[in-house]
Nucleic acid binder design. Structure first.
Lengths: 109, 109
DNA sequence: ACACTATATGTCACGTCGTGATACAGTCGT
DNA sequence: ACGACTGTATCACGACGTGACATATAGTGT
């Protein structure tokens, strides 16, 4: 698949995918991502093992992330340039979402 | 189900659900929501008929929205107090997401 | 030595969700 | 009469997150 289509297939991004990619400018392994996301969200989001390893495999297959190092019993991933482009798109969407939320927030008080 | 559990089952909210609820402080019917969301997102998000009517039925069943008026060939919905509480929770999550995105955004340039 | 917890990855069945096709019907302009 | 728009509904399909289960190593406390 072309890069454009892959990027579009990831938008809108799930919260899981977003926080995984947000963790990967620094190389990390699956379990390290789980802990990092837990910290970032102050315990709110604890990714299940099925979620993390399934998503990592899919992302690697799609070229969003790549294997940085393959230690024994530790596969360390890193975001690719395609993944970074994807994140820029997703952040634009998030900005729109956030702006629309704040625009109408008084309606929900 | 208790209200607490229903609210949790809607978080994280899908983009579809978010924009539907954002449209419903003003009573609207399905087709009207589609057009309103299309306008809000400047054409980016055009909800499919399957998405909108399926979601509206589920939301009404869960007490997130309620039927405001049932005209011939037009069912008009409105958000409930439970729906508003849900939106306040979701907006908090969105704020966290947005804050984390901006905190690390330089990593993706 | 034993138990427990943390680290670390993987698989699978399950339920939920958005998509797009299909269907049907009324309205409005030309 | 015809097409475009309005309006609702259903269905099969594919994708996704969840949580349970399995497996294995390392470290700590008793």
């Amino acid at each position: 698949m072309e890069i454009e289509k892959i990027i579009k297939s990831y938008i809108p991004m799930t919260e899981t995918a977003f926080y995984i990619l947000l963790s990967l400018p620094i190389p990390r392994h699956g379990y390290g991502i789980i802990k990092h996301v837990e910290e970032l969200t102050e315990g709110r989001l604890v990714l299940g093992s099925g979620t993390i390893y399934g998503t990592l495999t899919k992302m690697q297959r799609d070229g969003i992330i790549t294997i940085y190092a393959d230690e024994k019993r530790k596969t360390i991933y890193e975001i690719t340039d395609v993944g970074k482009a994807l994140m820029r798109h997703e952040m634009n969407r998030l900005r729109e979402l956030h702006a629309n939320a704040w625009k109408y927030k008084e309606e929900f008080l």
